[in-house]
Amino acid sequence: DAPDEFRDPLMDTLMTDPVRLPSGTIMDRSIILRHLLNSPTDPFNRQTLTESMLEPVPELKEQIQAWMR
């Protein structure tokens, strides 16, 4: 099983494109984008959230890719 820090906190699946929300939570980009289609909010604190506020986490993405090899 993947380490917890590699798993999306909402869907508990392996992240492939991790992004940091303004709240500091790291999620998979595809999952948070799907959530934003229904509700333009951070799913953990209900603060306003837009796609432009998502910050890529390239170092975590590299760690996940290395773990998958």
Rank of each mutant, 00 (worst) to 15 (best):
D1T: 14
D1R: 15
A2I: 15
A2L: 13
P3N: 05
P3R: 06
D4I: 15
E5G: 10
E5M: 13
E5T: 11
E5L: 12
E5A: 12
F6G: 02
F6T: 02
R7T: 06
R7L: 11
R7W: 09
D8N: 04
P9F: 07
P9R: 07
L10G: 03
M11G: 09
M11A: 13
D12M: 14
D12G: 15
D12T: 09
D12L: 15
T13C: 15
T13H: 07
L14R: 02
L14V: 13
M15E: 01
T16F: 11
T16Q: 12
T16I: 14
D17K: 02
P18G: 02
P18A: 01
P18R: 01
P18W: 06
V19Q: 03
V19H: 03
R20S: 05
L21R: 01
L21D: 01
L21E: 00
L21G: 00
P22N: 01
P22S: 05
P22G: 03
S23V: 02
G24I: 03
T25F: 15
T25A: 13
I26L: 04
D28S: 03
S30D: 13
S30R: 12
I32Y: 02
I32V: 09
L33E: 09
L33C: 11
R34I: 11
R34H: 13
R34S: 12
R34C: 13
L36W: 04
L37I: 11
L37G: 10
N38Q: 13
S39P: 01
S39M: 08
P40K: 14
T41P: 02
T41K: 08
T41L: 09
D42E: 07
D42W: 04
P43M: 03
F44N: 03
F44S: 03
N45T: 15
R46V: 07
R46L: 14
Q47L: 10
Q47H: 11
Q47T: 15
Q47E: 14
Q47Y: 08
Q47F: 08
L49D: 03
E51C: 08
E51D: 08
M53H: 05
M53P: 02
L54A: 01
L54N: 00
L54M: 05
L54W: 05
E55C: 09
E55L: 10
P56F: 08
P56D: 13
V57K: 03
P58A: 09
P58C: 08
E59T: 10
L60P: 00
L60I: 06
L60Y: 03
K61S: 08
K61W: 11
K61R: 13
K61L: 13
E62W: 12
E62M: 13
E62T: 10
E62I: 11
Q63I: 11
Q63T: 09
I64S: 00
I64R: 00
Q65S: 10
Q65R: 12
A66K: 13
W67N: 03
W67I: 04
R69S: 13
R69W: 11
R69D: 13
